[in-house]
Design a protein around this nucleic acid. Structure first.
Length: 408
RNA sequence: CGGGGUGUGGCCCAGUUGGUCUAAGGCGUCUGGUUUGGGACCAGAAGAUCGUGAGUUCAAAUCUCACCACCCCGACCA
C-alpha cells in the first residue's frame, strides 16, 4: 500500500485522554480511532492486524474441529430470562424495539448457542462437536479502561463444545488448551503467557485463564516458574501452591487475561433442556464447555508487550505489513522495487510521500513493521537498499536483486 | 456506582484572585522559497459557538448551579 494513499495520519503528540501505552501508540500511529470510552474503530492498519490475529485463531480452532458460525448479536429477552441472566447480568446492554419487545446486545452467547445446538442434538451419535464465532461483544462495563484491554465493545472468539459426558469434555478441554497455547505462540505471546487457575468454574473446581505477563495488566497472578502455570490471586486463599507440582514459592506478577476457558457442565443445557438419547435409549443431559479469546484485547496485549520508546514492534505473524519501504527522494527506483516486492507476494507499506527523512523514519518506527527498506541516493550508488529490522539498531545494505528473497 | 481530575482552532496546550482576551504558543494544514539519512528552515495565510445550558455582573474562557464527555484510583468484571 502506498502511504500517500493511506487516509489516516500519524500524530506526534500523545492523546490527552489515553493513559495506556497500547491506546496511545495505536492512536498516534493510526491503527485505531477512539469513538467513545471503551469504544474503538479499526482503521486500515489496525484492521489488517486484527484480521491476522483472527486468522491465526481461526486456523487453530479449525484444527481441533471447530465449526465457524456467526450468531445473532441482537438477542431477545426471552433467551436471557431462560437462564435468569436478564435480571442478573449487570453488564448487559438492554434495549427495546417496537411494541416494547426487549433485547440485549450479545455480551456472551450461551443463550443463543445452547438452544441452537439443542435443535441439532438428538442422539449420542450427534456428539461431540464444537462451534465458534468471531464477533463483536457488548458489555456495559462500569468503567472501561486501558485502551483495548477493557472495552465496552470488543471482538471475541467464543467456542462452545457439547459432549455426552464429563470425560469427553475433559479430553476436549485439554485439546483446547493445547490449541490456545499454539495460538498465543503464533501471536508472539507464547513466552510470557501462563495457564492460570481461576475461579468461575460452575461445574469444575476451577476455570482456567491464559494470562500474559504485563505491567498494564489488571490481574494479579502467582506464577510457578517450574511448571509455567499460575494461580489467579482471586483463588490464592484456597490454592496457595502450584496445583501441578506443589511448589510453595509462587511469584506474584501482573498480567492481562487473554483467554478464559470454562467447564459449564449442564448449567446452560439444563434450562434449555438440551438432551440426547444414549445407547440404551435413555435421555441424558448434554455436557458443555466454553472457551474465549479476545482478538482485540490480544492486539492491545501485543502492543503492550512489543514496543520501545519510538513505537510498536510487531511480531511478523501479525504485522500490518511485512516491510516498510521508505523512499528518500528516489521514488522512481522505489516504485520499481515496490512493484517487484508486491508482485513477489510481500506485504509492503510504501512511504512514497514527499517528506523529510526524519519524519519518514519516525513514522516507520511508530508503525512498527518488522522490516524497514530504505531507498536513497546513498544506497542506490551501490545498487542496494538498506534493510533494517525494526527491533535492530543497524541495518545492512542489500542488493536490489536479492531483496525479495531476503524478505521472504 | 463511590472518590479524584480534566474539558480552550484538526492535535498538544497557555491563560482561570472577572476588565486591551477582539484568546497566546507549538504541531498540523494552505501559498511561495530554501532544504533532503532522524519529526529541517524562512516568509505569508487560513482556522476558535473557550464542553453544553442557565445564572451573577457594567463586564465571564475566568465566578455560581445543573448537565454532558473523557481520564485516573477503587468497587464490579457471566
Amino acid at each position: 500500500m502506498r502511504q500517500s494513499q493511506l487516509f489516516t495520519k500519524t500524530v506526534k503528540e500523545l492523546p490527552k485522554d489515553e493513559a495506556s501505552y497500547n491506546a496511545q501508540a495505536l492512536i498516534r500511529a493510526g491503527f485505531v480511532d477512539k469513538t467513545g470510552a471503551g469504544i474503538y474503530s479499526y482503521l486500515p492498519l489496525g484492521k489488517r492486524v486484527l484480521d491476522k490475529i483472527c486468522q491465526i485463531i481461526r486456523e487453530e480452532i479449525d484444527n481441533i474441529g471447530g465449526q465457524e458460525i456467526l450468531m445473532a448479536a441482537l438477542i431477545p429477552k426471552e433467551n436471557w430470562q431462560a437462564t435468569d441472566r436478564w435480571a442478573t447480568f449487570d453488564a448487559l446492554f438492554r434495549l427495546s424495539g417496537n411494541d416494547q419487545r426487549e433485547y440485549a446486545l450479545g455480551a456472551t452467547h450461551e443463550e443463543v448457542v445452547t438452544p441452537l445446538a439443542g435443535k441439532n442434538i438428538f442422539s449420542y451419535k450427534d456428539l461431540p462437536f464444537g462451534v465458534y464465532q468471531i464477533q463483536t461483544k457488548f458489555r456495559n462495563e462500569k468503567r472501561a479502561k486501558a485502551g483495548l484491554l477493557r472495552g465496552r465493545e470488543f471482538l471475541m472468539k467464543d467456542l462452545y463444545s457439547f459432549h455426552v459426558d464429563e470425560a469427553d469434555l475433559d479430553a476436549y478441554y485439554e485439546r483446547v488448551i493445547q490449541a490456545y497455547f499454539k495460538i498465543f505462540q503464533r501471536l508472539g505471546l507464547g513466552d510470557n503467557t501462563y495457564l492460570t487457575y481461576a475461579s468461575g468454574g460452575s461445574f469444575a473446581k476451577y476455570s482456567h485463564e491464559f494470562q500474559t505477563l504485563a505491567e498494564e495488566g489488571e490481574d494479579r497472578i502467582h506464577v510457578c516458574n517450574q511448571c509455567r502455570v499460575a494461580v489467579n490471586q482471586e483463588i490464592v486463599a484456597e490454592q496457595k501452591t502450584c496445583p501441578l507440582c506443589g511448589n510453595e514459592k509462587l511469584a506474584e506478577m501482573k498480567a492481562i487475561e487473554v483467554g478464559n476457558i470454562f467447564k459449564l457442565g449442564t448449567k446452560f443445557s439444563a434450562p434449555f433442556e438440551v438432551k440426547y438419547k444414549d445407547a440404551a435409549g435413555r435421555e441424558q443431559p448434554v455436557i458443555m464447555g466454553c472457551y474465549g479469546i479476545g482478538p482485540s484485547r490480544a492486539l492491545g496485549t501485543i502492543v503492550e508487550t512489543y514496543h520501545d520508546d519510538r513505537g510498536i514492534i510487531w511480531p511478523a505473524s501479525v504485522a500490518p505489513f511485512r516491510a516498510h519501504l521508505v523512499s528518500l527522494n528516489e521514488n522512481q527506483t522505489a516504485d520499481e522495487i515496490y512493484d517487484q516486492l508486491t508482485s513477489a507476494g510481500s506485504e509492503v507499506l510504501y512511504d512514497d510521500r514527499d517528506l523529510s527523512a526524519g519524519e519518514k523514519f519516525a513514522d516507520a518506527d511508530l508503525i512498527g513493521c518488522p522490516y524497514r527498506v530504505v531507498v536513497s541516493k546513498k544506497t542506490l550508488s551501490q545498487d542496494s537498499v538498506e534493510l533494517k529490522k525494526r527491533a535492530d539498531d543497524k541495518g545492512e545494505l542489500v542488493k536490489i536483486d536479492a531483496l525479495a528473497l531476503k524478505l521472504k
